[in-house]
Design a protein around this nucleic acid. Structure first.
Lengths: 254, 254
DNA sequence: GAGTGGTCTAGACCACCTA
DNA sequence: AGGTGGTCTAGACCACTCC
């Protein structure tokens, strides 16, 4: 990488970074043990660990307690597309997440954490044009799993005026087309979607909830569903582990 | 956060994480010096540093050499929208990046790193339907700055058959509407865009090029421009510092 | 039990910033 | 000059994994 002369831990990290980038060390390969590197580089173990930490933070290696440090194996990407709410999925009966999991050779699983009426966060209230100081929304919290990895932490908000008395509140009778099927029955077909995506490091809580290894950021996506008349009627925040997720948008230029 | 009892560095990190999340320590506040924390917590300085590192990796604090450790101040977001190629910007003569920088109170700057004919990366070649084993594309490398911060590292690829002999190769005469103005004149107006976005930690090279502090991931966006007949004619990879960038898509559901 | 990474100590010197 | 973070040493013990 950069020819970092002086700092020993950087030099060691650059050495391995170069070997990994050129493919000399392929994914899944075990690095020499820290105590081995201590002798080969003639430095203290802390220094070797600092080097390993740099590589781990860059997402290039994953340390396994008691086993060794390994070159990270890229995870297959689960794509979340701009067509995810398209009517075309109605006919097949398959959800985009299911399709993507199968493509990646993984078993999809959907977990409901909670369904309740509550006060929305300020940004959600603003997007949905509802009261930020009262229980103005129905909130649904879910987790999407691929095999044994939690991939998305998803929180959906629907104005209580829309959700009240619908199948959204009673999850025992699932709608065949999910939340958006129910909303469509209520007179809210989706005409446009409004997505805002950023990326950041996980909070300590998210890191635990999504079981994230070091060096893995999250994609933070705020989605708003809009009816043909311009009324926003549903907002969802996706917190996605970035090493297993991508967003795709195939859209017209207007 | 989680009540981590045993590990001293985690306990210290959790202490400060809680104070930052509740707002007891507001952005810009200076934390006590490491040597102070050594005495208040009764641990070695390495342990305090491990705690600070955990917070820095989570993007909560930023250490400044010789000055102290500070609670991170959120940077204003530069938005990159799905309308960024919209004809509507032609009339105003303003680029979306300029508009966003002004909104954020920053001075935009555009730097050309290189323009050359070269061999495309494999994924680009695939997207553009060109030869991956020859100099089949024109490559333009640029950096977008907001004040003194490099925000995007942008690499654009145009099939040589399209770019040859056009104003793209001769940058001395800039087209009023930029690259896409030239391409439109060549018979390539954009009908659709195809974006694929992921997030990851920067490589060591990117970390240096974008001057990224610890705990800041990058958004890696691959954009492909498509003509009305479905022909892809331009691909661009954006590497964006995530703490200053967001992607917005306001699009119809098809 | 042997080998691995995870954490910690108690020092030391260096590089940078402010005054 | 004095305070700050950045790096390093040479040890130590713990927790986990594999045989």
């Amino acid at each position: 990488m950069t020819e970092d002369q002086t700092v020993a831990s950087h030099r060691i990290a650059d050495d391995f970074a170069a070997k990994i980038e050129t493919g000399e060390l392929s994914p899944g390969t075990k690095l020499p043990s820290e105590r081995t590197l201590v002798t080969t580089y003639g430095v203290a173990r802390n220094t070797v660990q600092a080097a390993m930490r740099l590589l781990a933070e860059a997402g290039m290696v994953v340390p396994h307690h008691g086993r060794g440090v390994y070159v990270r194996t890229p995870a297959p990407l689960i794509r979340l597309g701009s067509d995810r709410y398209s009517p075309k999925y109605r006919e097949s009966g398959l959800s985009p997440f299911k399709i993507e999991c199968e493509r990646a050779g993984k078993q999809p699983r959907f977990e409901v954490l909670s369904i309740d009426r509550t006060q929305p966060p300020r940004d959600i209230a603003e997007q949905l044009h509802v009261d930020a100081d009262g229980p103005s929304v129905l909130r649904l919290e879910n987790v999407f799993w691929a095999d044994d990895d939690p991939v998305y932490r998803v929180t959906t908000y629907v104005p209580w005026t829309i959700a009240e008395g619908t199948g959204l509140v009673e999850p025992e009778v699932p709608h065949p087309y999910g939340i958006h099927g129910v909303l469509e029955d209520q007179g809210y077909p989706m005409a446009r979607l409004h997505d805002v995506a950023t990326a950041r490091m996980p909070t300590l809580a998210e890191k635990a909830a999504l079981r994230l290894p070091a060096g893995v950021p999250v994609i933070d996506l705020l989605h708003v569903s809009v009816r043909a008349d311009g009324e926003p009627y549903e907002a969802t925040r996706f917190v996605m582990r970035a090493d297993m997720s991508s967003l795709t948008y195939d859209v017209p230029v207007e």
